[in-house]
Write a protein that binds this DNA or RNA. Structure first.
Lengths: 128, 128
DNA sequence: GATCCCCTTAAAGTGGACTTTAATTACTTT
DNA sequence: AAAGTAATTAAAGTCCACTTTAAGGGGATC
């Protein structure tokens, strides 16, 4: 299945300029062109993009993704290296989740304080 | 206890320019000055900053923190409003954690694929 | 009294990840 | 043939949260 940039934009949820930008940055390689030089995307491009988007939206920086893609293009000899990149990313995500849970605790503590404040206010109103 | 900007910077882990920036943005109010116009921070400032830093590092945007601080300065009548802000933030954090867990699943799946790839490579090497 | 070190302000610069603009080309529809 | 729609490129702009720079003012120390 082939897609114009507009269709691919809809399918991926990325704007057309973003797709061009990713391609220019080397993050989305192997995009074909038609006779007029217009981009034609296929399902393989989609799978690639799907993977990249997952890495991006879980906080991997562009530069690291670029590195990963470049390794990929260097073939099988880089499997170890790529696995390591993904492993590091896993640790990064786990760390982030831990941090967020800590902050969640603090926020819940604050909410508890607000509950007490509110209860006190109600008492005061009763007295009036 | 009083602190110079340098000491307070050490205590909070925020750079002196960042402290001045936060103050200018209205996020850290009530900072006193000495005779020469130099800032003097106290423990109340620290507690405030501690709370703000927790909100910031769990992803609350500056503008929202500013709003929260402004409400705080408007007194008790804004308790409901402030509680709502914190509650929204709690939901944001929970959402973020959920998203990250999804991405973690994807990453683990990818790692499993790499394990299979590696196993296959070893087999191939045995054959040679 | 020159040298440090810390402080002040306003303003300009930075980094990352896009987004927007401008100028141009090509196909399609009326 | 004119108008409309979608594509192309390079380059400039945007947003956020700082960071850095520039220009200067105390006050303690050698």
């Amino acid at each position: 299945m082939n897609y114009s940039i507009k269709e691919f934009s809809l399918k991926t949820g990325l704007s057309a300029p973003t797709l061009r930008y990713y391609e220019k940055e080397g993050i989305l390689p192997f995009v074909k062109r038609d006779g007029n030089g217009n981009r034609i995307y296929d399902d393989e491009n989609f799978e690639w993009m799907d993977c990249i988007v997952a890495l991006r939206s879980s906080g991997m920086p562009m530069a690291e993704i670029k590195h990963y893609v470049d390794s990929f293009n260097d073939g099988e000899k880089t499997i170890q290296e790529r696995k390591q990149v993904v492993l590091n990313h896993k640790l990064r995500i786990q760390n982030e989740i831990m941090q967020l849970n800590k902050h969640l605790d603090k926020v819940n503590y604050k909410l508890a304080l607000y509950d007490i404040l509110e209860a006190d206010q109600k008492k005061q109103n009763k007295k009036l």
